[in-house]
Design a binder for these strands. Sequence first.
DNA 1: CTGTTAGCGCCTTCAT
DNA 2: ATGAAGGCGCTAACAG
Lengths: 349, 349
Amino acid sequence: MARITGDGAVETGVVKLKDVALRAGCSVATASRVLNGHPTVGPAEKERVLAAAAQLGYVPNNSARALRSQSTSLVGVVIPTLDHAIYAKMVGGLQERLARSGKAVIISTSDYDLERERMQAKLLVGRGVESIVLVGLEHHPETLEYLRRAGVSQVFTYTCELGDGDAAVGFDNRLAGASVARFLLERGHTRFGMIAGVTRGNDRATQRRDGFIATLTEAGIQRQDIIVVEAPYRIENGRAAMQSLMQTHPRPTTVFCGSDILAVGAIKYCHSAGIAVPEDVSVVGFDNLEVAELVTPELTTVDVPAREMGEAAADALLRLGEKKGSFIVTELPTRLIVRGSTGPAAARR
Amino acid sequence: MARITGDGAVETGVVKLKDVALRAGCSVATASRVLNGHPTVGPAEKERVLAAAAQLGYVPNNSARALRSQSTSLVGVVIPTLDHAIYAKMVGGLQERLARSGKAVIISTSDYDLERERMQAKLLVGRGVESIVLVGLEHHPETLEYLRRAGVSQVFTYTCELGDGDAAVGFDNRLAGASVARFLLERGHTRFGMIAGVTRGNDRATQRRDGFIATLTEAGIQRQDIIVVEAPYRIENGRAAMQSLMQTHPRPTTVFCGSDILAVGAIKYCHSAGIAVPEDVSVVGFDNLEVAELVTPELTTVDVPAREMGEAAADALLRLGEKKGSFIVTELPTRLIVRGSTGPAAARR
DNA sequence: CTGTTAGCGCCTTCAT
DNA sequence: ATGAAGGCGCTAACAG
């Protein structure tokens, strides 16, 4: 698809900066300067370059630009999975906000595996990302070391602890777990169950659990009256976990779930087993997903501002680019949304 | 933060091919050959290069590789929104499958706006993507023209019509709508409502609606016994739309919703208004989201293989790269999942 | 203010 | 089978 231009040059496919310079009658350096808004260019020259670029439909080659300038305007994000709305929405907020600043987002998933996260992060560095957005505080030490050496700034989300990162955007998972505990204590509950997410390699799940338990024990609840199980975030697992909890004697008067996903599974089990919610057992979730308002009874849960977190992560990342070497912590509020799945403690039987 | 390695080299930041060659005691050419699986390398040399690369944690610089080889291994995807699970999951499948082939995914969103989609597509081309994954068949003509000129192959998803694209991976929305109509006819329904998604610029919503209506009219249903409203995919809108449908006289014995999101809103309205589902009115959704099994009664819906679609899109895109200029159509099956929200037609009142 | 020059990191001829 | 060298397209020094 070669074609002959007005001035006789033969072009094949893509137009390069050289072509623009040729047509504008200047050097590639000047053309480059104009196109990059460099000020020291005469207005006449400038005009010609711009016109030439427009006529030729010039599109800069980002690979060359990136290679040369060592800057790609690329941001990497590694999340556990796109199947969970909270992560997907976070990425949505991130992407949208970054797009306004001309940055693009390369996405990848780790499936809650810190080792996979490490690999993904390396690949992203190879892609030339200048910053990387990770979920949580806990990561493979090598991941962070590698990123640091590569000069890639690190933004942690879903946590407001900075750890070894450059920025943290999120909330205090421990505090959130504690707030649920306090709420349930106030309602007079005495025996507690928890269906936590898998805590291995997941600081969010760990802290929610720890904050919950610590607050209960500080309030005088015996450790034997707190029974904790772990389950991957899937409805089926919530159901099975609830079943095991409901088979203990005496059974908990309330169950706190590390995610709404688990909570709806738990409620589903109760329905099938003839256990009344909240009369027999109160259930609390986490995340405030859309489903929270769709189950019967509606789910008491902790609202997590997923989209806002993505937007705030974008802001943090942008500021990090401006002042290199600074640290940013943005704490976002969570709040307990009380709905029908919780009530006063069930009568002892 | 330079550090001294065992063999005395000073490293700053990222490991380059030169570093690997140095440590392996060979030339960069040889190292390159080994890392690219070029056959003509002695096994001893090969071993050393691989070891060196592993020890140093070498990651190729994609900008350089892209510049040299004129190929970026970058794929762009534009979806309406990451807030809806079907799109998020599709992207998840796409990303995961492409990662295996060393391709990265740059993501962006259009918010169901074809004009925004056009802009995003242009930006992606500027980023050097070699293929682009779009949702649906209908796009701004300029979008497709631009992509074609830039040599970017186009994969459409959620449709199995090729249109002006190079590949289509999805299902027949019209047929899916028709299958719902047939199912409801068999159950003896006589007056039909539909809460469709917004059809403007959305061929999926349009075709689901058209297939539904066409099948009904072909079966002898009068057009006045089919009432259709449109609503953006949000629970609240489903609720409001259902309210308006339930206020017509005589009211429909069944309502087909263009998405489970709308359907759960519709069911929610029924609960609040004392309308029994499915006794008073049957409800059918679309997508088979997780919520479909969580509402009461559970939702009859059309299962859409979102993740598989992403994976199939990746496959199509890969094949497209191999045989330039070919066309690929992959039709994925949908199936009607019958649950408790549908029953025989309600008794006439 | 503009042009010339020297690479960015990698792959791939071309020699050996 | 291996190494040396050139250049992908662009930008940032440095000259002029």
